[in-house]
């Protein structure tokens, strides 16, 4: 009887880990898209998600717009934000040392966290989605509806962007831009347009992440902390790999759930938040370019 319960508990942790992991993959995808196309490391990915959450909640509660329109507003706002950010800030940093972009995005993250609430919100706002409360029960699996939705949306977009890069002409051109900007220019590829496109695609992913994670955690400044999960995900999977983002997300999701389930009871909690980082540091020591990443981690 006890063993059956144990097994049930493990299965619960694992299924939870997979669903949450896929939702990490989705956000990590935003990071990967930008790195793949522009070689820029975006330390503000979590803040992008937070801003999307604010826009959706703001549209829903302050402006009183229907939910689907609020989600659309978040999408449009984040795509616009991505484009604008590339045009205003990042284009100026093209060709500068990578540390310039890193510092710029860290600064941007701080600004967004500071400006995010903008005096409109006090405390945490819920972002309700029309989902049922009871979990789906499939044999031994208990899956909360938001996690199922999150998992499915993540998979759809991961597959979509994967297809885009592999098969579509624009995707192949974007890979060319990522590979060598100068040569891409000589092919007649408008490099700056593709940079803008990459940031806009990150906006799409961030908007979805903002709605999904906003529903799970509530919308406040702390929503940006989701971004911290991105780093172990992309280090484990490889900074420039879409399959890597999926695998890395799954690993992080599983590890933190197993840690929470099995280690937390002995140490009083909190392992969930750092267990993925232990793994990340180990990965950096063994396979610095990630599981699927290009071997060249930095071009000089």
């Amino acid at each position: 009887m006890l063993e059956a319960l144990d097994l049930q508990f493990t299965i619960l942790l694992l299924s939870n880990g997979v669903m949450i992991g896929l939702m990490y993959s989705l956000i990590a995808l935003g990071f990967v898209l930008v790195y793949k196309a522009t070689d820029a490391v975006n330390f503000a990915q979590g803040e992008f998600v937070m801003i999307a959450g604010f826009v959706a909640v703001g549209a829903l509660t302050v402006a009183g717009i229907p939910l689907w329109l609020s989600i659309l507003a978040a999408l449009v706002a984040m795509v616009g934000f991505g484009f604008a950010l590339e045009r205003v800030m990042l284009r100026k940093l093209i060709g500068r040392p990578i540390i310039a972009v890193v510092m710029a995005t860290i600064g941007l993250a701080a600004i967004l966290r500071g400006l995010g609430p903008f005096g409109i919100f006090q405390g945490t706002r819920p972002l309700p989605l029309p989902l049922r409360d009871e979990p789906f029960i499939l044999g031994p699996l208990f899956i909360p509806p938001i996690q199922l939705l999150g998992g499915i949306v993540s998979l759809v977009f991961l597959a979509g962007f994967g297809y885009f890069f592999l098969k579509s002409r624009k995707g192949v051109a974007m890979r060319a831009v990522a590979d060598n900007q100068q040569v891409a220019m000589a092919m007649g590829i408008d490099v700056e347009r593709y940079f803008g496109l990459a940031w806009a695609m990150t906006g799409v992913v961030s908007a979805l992440g903002g709605v999904l994670w906003g529903n799970m955690l509530g919308v406040d400044v702390n929503l940006a902390l989701v971004g911290f999960k991105v780093f172990p995900v992309v280090i484990l999977g490889g900074l420039d790999s879409i399959p890597g983002a999926i695998i890395g997300g799954l690993i992080v999701g599983l590890v933190e759930n197993l840690a929470a389930g099995y280690i937390d009871p002995y140490v009083g909690g909190g392992t969930k938040d750092f267990a993925p980082y232990v793994l990340m540091i180990l990965a950096l020591m063994i396979r610095p370019y990630g599981i699927f990443g290009k071997r060249i981690i930095e071009r000089v």
Partner: peptide, 25 residues
Amino acid sequence: ARTFQNIALFSGMTVLDNLMLGRHV
């Protein structure tokens, strides 16, 4: 069109992808 002194192919891509990219414009 031009070529480069140090070969500048997109190394992760196939020959076909490289040639198709040549037709981008």
